[in-house]
Amino acid sequence: MSSLALWGRASRRGRGVLRRSFVIWVKVAVSRALIRVIAMYGDPLWIVVNVGGPMLTSLALAFLYMLAGLSSLTGFAILGGGMVAYWGNVLWSMASQLNWDKRSGMLYLYIASPAPLTALLIGMSLGGILGTLPSSIAVLIIGALLFKPPFTPPTITVALVFMLTLVALYGMGIALSSLYLILGRESEEINEALYEPISFLSGIYFPSIGRFSPLPLAIQAIASLIPLTLGMDALRRTLFYAEGLAELWPNISALAAMAAASILIGLRTLSFIERRGRETGDILVGMK
């Protein structure tokens, strides 16, 4: 057989393997997303429970904006209530997930199957985004009805910023989930410890960066390293100050870069931890 024919056969085989890997990747991601969505939508109580915290907090803070003297800013608190649900989801249902999977024995099955962990994490993110949507929308609708904050009708820019913020945020979740894999109960405590400070620094309920921020420049610079900060800032500026792509391009490009970087770092860390775990045997500590 000629070398060309051999190369052709090998190339066909290679393409077949690649195609099969791609099919598995897609199936795993879609099924993981679907399971998460089914678990959340299949039980309406989930939505009721998820709405509670963000809704009441954002209503209380919107009321505080009113009392402070500027009713037009109540929208900041309402938008924060809509977005904080995602931040909570990233920490509790994304970053901690692999750690919980480790403790339940599920991680063992994931690793002992051909399913790529990247597909599982992307699927989990997708499911988390879709699953949190009703809670987020409910908070926005209730807040808007009660406080009637002035805002610009959503545009393509809002959609783009919103999507990029979520990608960057869930990318951060992927990175954290890899790190939490080596921790035990500490991961829950770290989550508890991270939730409020990151919410504060990223300015979920108030502008932590930019011209309206009351924080010193040095703190603003640190806060800008958190993708959520840039996303919240851009969302506020599009929704409440009608700014467009021309003004927001620095936020958008930084968000895109952060999203790519956090996903990349997360996946690299994950593969490192998996490899190290196979060598030392500690990846499944918590399981028999």
């Binding site: 099969r20 199936k27 795993v28 678990a39 051909p114």
Partner: peptide, 19 residues
């Protein structure tokens, strides 16, 4: 397994891990 998901859907999910 996933507590809030049916046994059938759980088994289906695990089958998807293998494509």
């Amino acid at each position: 397994g996933f507590d809030f998901v049916t046994a059938r859907r759980n088994l289906w999910f695990f089958s998807q891990l293998y494509g």
